[in-house]
């Protein structure tokens, strides 16, 4: 019932924060020059960079081309990560045997940075989208596994006992107890996983990308063009925020019992 007004406040405070930050930025770089323009671009420089990339293009493409290409890669990587990671994590959470069997490989592979997979991804899959998706997958699948695992483990034992004593079948157990019980943490995992997709994008697009936001950021880094880096960061943040909002909506829809 307070949902609507809370949302309003949230947006208002958020907007006020961002506005305050923008004012601070302008003051720091332009009006007072606390920060030399060499260290951080001024709003005006960022505006010019934005105009350049929207109208003329930069790093072999215009902003929307980079944006769409990256969204595509992230969606591929996310889908691949979720479809492997969530079932695997839940299985490991449920079955101690599966955990003991899978854990060694998982724990050995998990800490390896996505960037470290680049050499192997190139020799295995070449310079196309597949190699980029592989690199993104490696990063995104870890949080999906860990949180799904933790989600199943966090289910109160009495719920499982109760279901058992009521004679629940295996399928019912999974559908009625495990999935709903694990869902809050599974969604935490999905959020982190989606975030990992975006943060690994640069690494993925180091593999001979022609367009993409990661490629854009890399190129802007090579050009020492801070204003364009900021434009790229904001674009990534917007795209990531948009996808997270979609995920939050899905979360709410799938857990109607958690209204707060």
């Amino acid at each position: 019932m307070r949902e609507g007004s809370d949302r309003g406040i949230r947006i208002a405070v958020g907007a006020a924060t961002l506005a305050a930050l923008a004012a601070l930025w302008t003051a720091a770089t332009t009006l007072e020059q606390w920060i030399a323009p060499v260290y951080f671009p001024t709003p005006q420089e960022v505006g010019n960079a934005l105009r350049q990339i929207v109208l003329q293009g930069y790093a072999d493409g215009r902003l929307h081309e980079h944006f769409l290409q990256s969204c595509k890669l992230v969606l591929y990587g996310f889908a691949a990560a979720v479809s492997v990671g969530v079932p695997l994590g839940m299985l490991m959470g449920w079955s101690r045997r599966a955990e003991a069997l899978v854990n060694p490989a998982f724990l050995l592979l998990r800490p390896i940075p996505p960037l470290a997979w680049i050499p192997l991804a190139i020799v295995w899959l070449g310079l196309g989208d597949a190699a980029k998706v592989l690199v993104i997958w490696f990063a995104a699948f870890v949080p999906a596994v860990i949180n799904s695992y933790a989600g199943v483990r966090s289910i109160e034992p009495y719920l499982i006992e109760a279901a058992r004593s009521l004679g629940a079948t295996r399928g019912m157990m999974v559908r009625e107890v495990l999935i709903p019980g694990a869902l809050p943490l599974v969604f935490t995992g999905l959020r982190l996983s989606l975030q990992a997709c975006w943060t690994t994008l640069i690494a993925g697009e180091l593999i001979g990308a022609i367009t993409g936001l990661g490629h854009l950021l890399y190129q802007a880094g090579l050009d020492l063009y801070p204003a364009m880096i900021v434009v790229g960061m904001v674009a990534v943040a917007l795209a990531g925020g948009l996808m997270t909002a979609l995920l939050a909506w899905a979360e709410k829809r799938s857990m109607p019992w958690r209204t707060s």
């Binding site: 050499p119 190139i122 070449g126 310079l127 180091l206 001979g208 022609i210």
Partner: peptide, 20 residues
């Protein structure tokens, strides 16, 4: 031509595996 930009190490990986 199609130009793909990568670091030197990545280029060497790609050439050595006949991906470029």
């Amino acid at each position: 031509v199609t130009i793909k930009s990568m670091g030197q190490a990545e280029i060497m990986s790609a050439m050595s595996s006949n991906n470029a």
